[in-house]
Measured scan of single mutants.
Amino acid sequence: DYEVGESVTVMDGPFATLPATISEVNAEQQKLKVLVSIFGRETPVELTFGQVSKI
């Protein structure tokens, strides 16, 4: 299970290999909103559970 505030690594898509912090969890739809730090700015990205891995 994923929790808000948890650190994960993006495994898929254009942000693969980047660390991210979970900002929202939708367990019903198996989706997460995460904040990816790009060029010093936090960018919100919506991903599925399968696109991230716990650190």
Rank of each mutant, 00 (worst) to 15 (best):
G5E: 03
P44S: 15
L18Y: 14
Q29Y: 10
I38D: 05
N26S: 07
V4L: 07
K33L: 14
F15M: 05
T48N: 12
Q29F: 11
V36C: 05
L35W: 09
A20C: 07
R41A: 10
A16C: 08
K31R: 12
G40L: 04
T17L: 10
Q51T: 04
L32A: 01
S23F: 15
L35F: 09
Q29I: 08
G13Y: 02
S23Y: 15
T17R: 12
A27W: 14
S53R: 13
A27Q: 12
G5N: 05
I38H: 09
S53C: 12
S23C: 14
F39I: 06
Q29S: 11
A16D: 04
L35D: 03
V8C: 05
L18G: 03
V36F: 04
D12S: 14
K33A: 05
R41L: 13
T48M: 11
P19R: 15
V25F: 04
N26L: 11
E6S: 07
V25G: 00
D1Q: 13
T21K: 12
V34G: 03
E42A: 09
F15C: 06
D12V: 15
E28D: 11
S53N: 09
V36I: 13
E6P: 01
L47I: 06
S23N: 08
V45E: 04
G13V: 02
M11S: 08
V36D: 00
P44T: 15
M11E: 07
V25T: 04
A16S: 08
S23W: 14
Y2A: 02
E24K: 06
V8F: 02
E42G: 06
P14M: 08
T9Y: 15
V34K: 00
T48P: 06
P44F: 15
P44V: 15
F49Y: 11
Q29V: 08
G40Q: 05
L35Q: 06
V52R: 00
K31T: 14
S37E: 09
T21G: 02
T9S: 06
T17G: 15
V34Q: 00
P19L: 15
E46A: 06
M11V: 12
E6L: 06
K54V: 05
A27D: 08
S23L: 15
I55T: 11
Q30E: 08
S37A: 09
E24F: 11
T43E: 13
E6N: 07
I38Q: 09
I22F: 01
V25P: 01
K31Q: 08
V8A: 02
I38E: 06
L35N: 08
A16H: 05
K54I: 06
T43G: 05
V52W: 02
I55C: 10
T21C: 09
K54G: 04
K31A: 06
E6C: 07
P19V: 15
S53I: 11
V4W: 04
A20L: 03
I22R: 00
F49M: 06
G40R: 03
T17N: 14
E3F: 13
F15T: 02
P19I: 15
V25C: 05
T43N: 07
V36M: 05
L32M: 08
F49N: 03
S7N: 10
P44I: 15
E24Y: 11
T9D: 04
L47C: 05
V52K: 00
P44K: 13
T17A: 09
P14K: 07
L47N: 00
Q51S: 07
V52S: 01
